[in-house]
């Protein structure tokens, strides 16, 4: 009977001798595919050397808001690496899968890299787009995703809003009018950043794509620098995409240790190098300087500075009936 129970428990709990194969699911936002493909391979190698175990990391990508909702609805994410803190807050608050203070668990508010929003225009910049003022001009067609579903789109919206506030002396009514004019120029709202890149670069729609900095660089790499060029506006927003272990799911999967190590390794020199190579601005100063040529210097504002906090920005602008719903006419 003892032997039988041992076999039963071993079989049930997956306990065996020798190296284990550990499976991890990273639920991320749209443009991080390439970053995590490279990072996952590096981490698997690191983990194998450290523990002898094989770790197989699966990736899931989509609009950040949609991805968060999927986790809330039962997608078994061991870790989430989303576009903005509000989306992980939603997972913590609605599904109680991780503590409310999750952002304090890793350095830099659990944001191992940052990014910003820039413009991608067609080669030669035929519409002479230099700054946000040019984007709202009549006759300019703008491509950007839907802020309701895309984290990148929310950063973009807030960057434009922050620019208008600065330009019009913090006049909120004028800032609203500014973003209203911007979205009047948007003919198609994709659900995520990658979809918008496809709309602009592959489907040939629009004069300017409001894109994550890394996504703009990727488009140049993917489609050729002879087709597009990046325009850096005078002001943009410091986008801080955070990461977190989804405690309850990782605990259930028995992957807490490896999930924590997976996120911690993003702060290592190798993790920071991979981020920089994929055009995410690294936190590590030395590595940031090494890759300084990849990142144009510009004035960056933060959500906390301009909008108080993500919770306030979400409630005022993106919640049902918020400013975006008021100004956007499909």
């Amino acid at each position: 009977m003892k032997t039988f129970l041992t076999i039963l428990l071993a079989s049930s709990l997956g306990v065996g001798a020798g190296a284990r194969e550990i499976k991890l699911l990273n639920v991320s936002y749209d443009p991080t595919r390439e970053l995590y493909q490279e990072y996952n391979a590096a981490f698997a190698k690191y983990w194998k050397a450290r523990t002898g175990d094989d770790v197989v990391i699966s990736q899931s990508h989509g609009g950040s808001g949609k991805q968060a909702q999927s986790v809330i609805n039962g997608l078994e994410a061991d870790v989430v690496t989303l576009a903005l803190a509000y989306d992980i807050d939603a997972v913590a608050q609605q599904a109680k899968l991780l503590p409310a203070d999750w952002q304090k668990r890793l350095p830099d508010n659990s944001t191992p890299y940052t990014s910003t929003i820039v413009f991608l225009v067609r080669k030669g910049n035929p519409k002479h787009i230099k700054d946000w003022d040019d984007v709202v001009k009549p006759g300019v067609t703008v491509v950007t995703p839907n802020p309701k579903t895309s984290g990148g789109a929310r950063w973009t919206y807030l960057a434009a809003y922050a620019y208008a506030l600065e330009t019009y002396g913090q006049d909120d009514a004028k800032a609203r009018d500014f973003v209203k004019r911007l979205y009047k120029n948007v003919p198609v709202l994709d659900s995520g950043a990658r979809g918008s890149t496809i709309t602009f670069a592959q489907r040939g729609i629009g004069d300017v794509l409001l894109a994550w900095e890394n996504e703009a660089h990727l488009a140049l790499k993917e489609f050729g620098a002879d087709q597009f060029e990046i325009v850096t506006p005078s002001l943009s927003i410091r986008a801080e995409p955070p990461v977190a272990v989804v405690d309850k799911i990782a605990k259930r999967h028995g992957t807490v240790e490896v999930a924590k190590a997976y996120l911690n390794y993003l702060y290592s020199d190798e993790g920071q190098e991979i981020a920089a190579k994929n055009f995410y601005r690294p936190r590590n100063q030395a590595i940031a300087e090494k890759y300084a040529a990849n990142f144009t210097q510009l004035k960056l504002v933060t959500v906390d500075q301009e909008f108080g906090s993500w919770a306030k920005a979400q409630a005022a602008h993106f919640a049902d009936g918020g400013v975006f719903d008021q100004i956007y006419q499909p």
């Binding site: 067609t141 659900s191 489907r203 040939g204 729609i205």
Partner: peptide, 17 residues
């Protein structure tokens, strides 16, 4: 051409949705 492309893309997105 832009209008046609936009309509085609919108149709594509509608199908995805």
């Amino acid at each position: 051409d832009q209008k046609v492309r936009i309509l085609a893309r919108q149709h594509e997105l509608d199908k995805e949705d």
